[in-house]
């Protein structure tokens, strides 16, 4: 399995990477001053990779993640997502890309409080005009996989943090995106529940999903193939690492949650 993946990765490298930043800068400006949140960043992430972005607060992690997630526009440079230049796209086109190609997982789950579990998972499909019946089938399937089968009609407020994050993961998967962007997904969870969530993410990666995660936890970082370190808006290191054992071991998704 591992060997196969390595081969795949080499092949992918010959083709387009899943995302590529070329000298991307982001400058926030108002009347008084200009702040460069990201300075001439170059980054390639191949399909199936598990990349972690690290750095102290204010280093530009969030900016980078927002840019990768097409939530923010770059000031200069080029950004290719799945081989497509998305640097100059308008708001509608970026919305479509967010809907179809990117799955978001947030630190604070960001579920819509008045919708139940299934409805929350279906939200991205709503904006893709997927029929209600199909959306329901798809959402139920994914919720089952993540061990939420018994709580489909629950509101987020009736769920534990770990369960809410599982719902968010289900939602990020529902439209089969190119990559999943996770912003400190375990930041609000206790370590046991956090581990469960990390196992779920490991398993997704093992299935071939590309993961880009922001964290400041070195232990979490060691589960990844690639560690990108940022400081003062610059990428100071970008190294491949052998994932530590235990990280990507047995499948956990659908297992005990709590």
């Amino acid at each position: 399995m591992r060997r196969e993946r390595d081969v795949e990765q080499e092949e992918a490298a010959l083709n387009d990477p899943i995302l590529e930043l070329r000298e991307v800068s982001k400058v926030y400006s108002n009347e008084q001053l200009q702040v460069a949140a990201l300075k001439s960043a170059d980054l390639r992430i191949e399909e199936g990779e598990y990349a972690v972005i690290m750095g102290p607060s204010g280093s530009g992690k969030s900016t980078l993640l927002n840019i990768l997630g097409c939530l923010d526009r770059i000031s200069s440079g080029r950004y290719f997502l799945g081989g497509e230049d998305v640097s100059g796209l308008d708001d509608d086109a970026l919305s479509a890309i967010r809907s179809r190609r990117i799955g978001f997982i947030f630190q604070s789950y960001n579920l819509i409080p008045q919708l139940n579990v299934l409805e929350n998972i279906e939200v991205p499909l709503f904006y893709q005009n997927v029929s209600e019946r199909q959306a329901r089938i798809r959402a139920t399937e994914i919720a089952d996989r993540l061990g939420l089968g018994a709580r489909l009609r629950h509101k987020p407020s009736e769920l534990s943090g770990g369960q809410q994050q599982r719902v968010a993961i289900a939602r990020s998967l529902v439209s089969s995106p190119l990559m999943i962007l996770a912003d400190e997904p375990t930041g609000n969870l206790d370590s046991a529940t956090g581990d469960e969530i990390l196992h779920v993410i490991d398993e997704l990666n093992a299935e071939g999903k590309t993961i880009v995660m922001v964290t400041h936890d070195d232990e979490i970082a060691h589960r990844a193939h690639r560690i990108v370190r940022l400081k003062d808006g610059e990428i100071v290191s970008n190294e491949l690492s052998e994932p530590s054992a235990g990280g990507r071991a047995k499948p956990v998704a659908g297992g005990t949650n709590r």
């Binding site: 509608d92 479509a96 991205p124 904006y127 893709q128 939602r171």
Partner: peptide, 16 residues
């Protein structure tokens, strides 16, 4: 506001 942010991140266009 937050719901709007979530929906936008999940692919809602401005006109949605």
């Amino acid at each position: 506001t937050r719901e709007i942010g979530i929906r936008r991140a999940l692919g809602a266009r401005q006109r949605d």
